[in-house]
């Protein structure tokens, strides 16, 4: 029973690691950013998952409702989402410039060209 209760977390861990793998294993700069995105979104899911209370509702106060889910992680994740999109935007802007400068967005090709310098 207890393990079932943790199953949700385990799936989240698998999601996180998928994103993490994409970041570190892939050569393509855009795909790395995609990986970062997935990694971050998975962490968001992790937070929201821990905020859930069984039988609770969204934390908007109303008459007659006793149990609410935890609002604090929601707040934190709202912040984190914005941080995430900010990072993505900057990362992509850099990718555009790198493409201008090197003519490629594959990491190993860039490295080869840097070593020639």
């Amino acid at each position: 029973m207890e393990f079932l209760g943790l199953l949700n977390y385990w799936i989240v861990v698998v999601l996180m690691m998928t994103g993490f793998y994409i970041v570190i294993a892939h050569n393509n700069l855009v795909k790395k950013i995609v990986g970062l995105n997935i990694f971050q979104v998975s962490v968001f899911v992790f937070y929201i998952t821990m905020a859930k209370v069984k039988g609770g509702t969204a934390p908007i106060l109303a008459e007659g409702i006793e149990i609410y889910s935890n609002p604090l992680p929601h707040v934190l994740i709202l912040t984190a989402i914005v941080v995430g999109v900010a990072t993505t935007a900057l990362g992509l802007a850099l990718v555009v410039r790198i493409h201008d400068a090197y003519g490629t967005i594959e990491d190993d090709e860039i490295e080869a060209r840097e070593n020639e310098l």
Binding site: F20, K32, L36, F39, T87, G91, L94, V95, Y102
Partner: peptide, 12 residues
């Protein structure tokens, strides 16, 4: 590229 790599690693 230095900034990009820093961005990826920093975000991780």
């Amino acid at each position: 590229t230095a900034a990009y790599r820093y961005l990826v690693i920093g975000t991780i």
